[in-house]
Computed example of a mutant assay.
Amino acid sequence: MNENEISKIIVTATIEVHRTLGGPGLLESVYEEALAYELQQAGCDVQRQSQSPIHYKGVTLATPLRIDLLVNDLVIVECKAVAQYNAIFATQVLTYLRLRNLKLGLIVNFGEKLVKDGIHRVVNNL
């Protein structure tokens, strides 16, 4: 499966989670756990709170990169539950993609009334 095929599965699972949990209003961690479950049910390999070391000038920093969801080792999903989207979220995910040498990330804001409006695609040389 490539990144675009995985992203279709993620979008479908996101809509299911949002619908089933009744929309916005819960903690980000609740949506993240439910989304991980849905993706696993769809046959995806999902790592929650995946940690990667950050290297700086030959030194490994003590604080690792922490990714909300890593799907099939190809797509990063950053879960949010905020009333208003902030463009810094895309910058954050692009940095994650570059550090992990990945091509696609999705920001999912479960705080939107319609979650389809809260899904943002971030690409790194895709």
Rank of each mutant, 00 (worst) to 15 (best):
N2W: 05
E5P: 14
I6E: 11
S7Y: 00
V11T: 14
T12E: 15
T12L: 12
T12P: 05
A13L: 11
I15T: 10
I15S: 03
E16L: 14
V17I: 10
V17P: 08
H18P: 15
H18W: 01
R19C: 07
L21S: 11
G22D: 13
G23F: 02
G23H: 05
P24G: 00
L26M: 14
S29P: 00
V30P: 03
Y31F: 14
Y31S: 13
E32K: 15
E32D: 05
L35Y: 10
Y37I: 11
Y37F: 11
Y37N: 00
Y37A: 02
E38A: 15
E38P: 15
L39R: 15
Q40G: 06
Q41F: 08
A42L: 09
C44F: 02
C44I: 13
D45R: 09
D45P: 02
V46F: 05
Q49K: 15
Q49D: 13
Q49G: 15
Q49H: 15
Q49C: 09
S50W: 13
S50Y: 15
S52T: 14
S52V: 04
P53Y: 00
P53W: 00
P53G: 03
I54F: 01
I54T: 06
K57S: 14
K57T: 13
G58H: 08
G58L: 13
G58S: 09
V59H: 10
V59P: 00
V59S: 03
T60K: 11
L61W: 09
L61G: 02
L61I: 14
A62R: 08
A62K: 12
A62Y: 08
T63F: 02
T63I: 14
P64T: 05
P64M: 05
R66V: 15
I67Y: 02
L69D: 10
L70W: 07
V71G: 01
D73M: 00
V77A: 07
E78Y: 07
E78P: 04
C79R: 00
K80F: 01
V82L: 07
A83I: 09
Q84A: 05
Y85I: 10
N86M: 08
A87S: 12
A87L: 11
I88T: 10
I88L: 09
T91Y: 08
V93F: 01
V93S: 06
V93A: 04
L94W: 02
L97P: 04
R98I: 06
L99P: 01
R100V: 07
N101R: 10
L102A: 10
L102M: 08
K103H: 07
L104P: 09
L104Q: 13
G105P: 05
L106P: 03
L106M: 11
I107E: 09
V108Q: 03
V108S: 02
N109H: 06
F110K: 09
F110Y: 10
E112A: 02
E112P: 01
K113A: 11
K113D: 12
K113L: 07
L114T: 08
V115M: 01
V115L: 01
V115P: 03
V115T: 04
V115G: 00
K116H: 05
G118I: 14
I119D: 01
I119P: 06
R121H: 03
V122C: 02
N125V: 04
L126M: 12
L126W: 04
